[in-house]
């Protein structure tokens, strides 16, 4: 299965997906012209992975500093996708700067609809 390694640009985050380890990391800032271009590839690999996880789990680390509204919408879709994969053991770590109240609230907001996914708020400094 495909791994994914996308370097950060000025307006898009670094993305690392390791299918063997079952880890996905999205790190940096996200305010691209076209959110679907950034999140499309992530959606594709996730869809594949979740479809054939076969007992393997998935760990997702979000280390986002800033994102725009369409990125937020894409993230919401992504959480929906994770939540729907009820047969895969999924853990999400939502990292945020300890003094960034907004980022923390976004995390809380995203976690609201999640039942099956384990969602951790991780303050860092």
């Amino acid at each position: 299965m495909d791994n994914l390694l996308i370097a950060a640009t000025e307006r898009s985050p670094e993305v690392t997906f390791d299918s063997a380890a079952g880890t996905l990391r999205i790190k940096g800032e996200s305010y691209p012209e076209d959110a679907s271009q950034v999140f499309g590839p992530i959606f594709n690999v996730l869809q594949d992975y979740l479809g054939q996880a076969d007992g393997k789990g998935l760990k997702v680390d979000f280390e986002l500093i800033y994102f725009n509204s369409s990125s937020a919408k894409a993230l919401m879709n992504m959480f929906q996708m994770l939540e729907n994969a009820a047969d895969v053991d999924i853990e999400v770590n939502w990292q945020f700067m300890a003094d960034d109240e907004t980022m923390k609230e976004f995390g809380e907001d995203f976690s609201e609809d999640l039942e099956h996914v384990t969602f951790n708020l991780v303050p860092v400094s």
């Binding site: 076209d34 959110a35 679907s36 271009q37 950034v38 999140f39 499309g40 590839p41 959606f43 594709n44 369409s70 919408k73 894409a74 879709n77 929906q80």
Partner: peptide, 14 residues
């Protein structure tokens, strides 16, 4: 919009 390029629409579910 978006359906063509990235392969998905932000408002796919909707």
């Amino acid at each position: 919009e978006g359906n063509s390029k990235g392969g998905f629409s932000l408002f796919d579910a909707e």
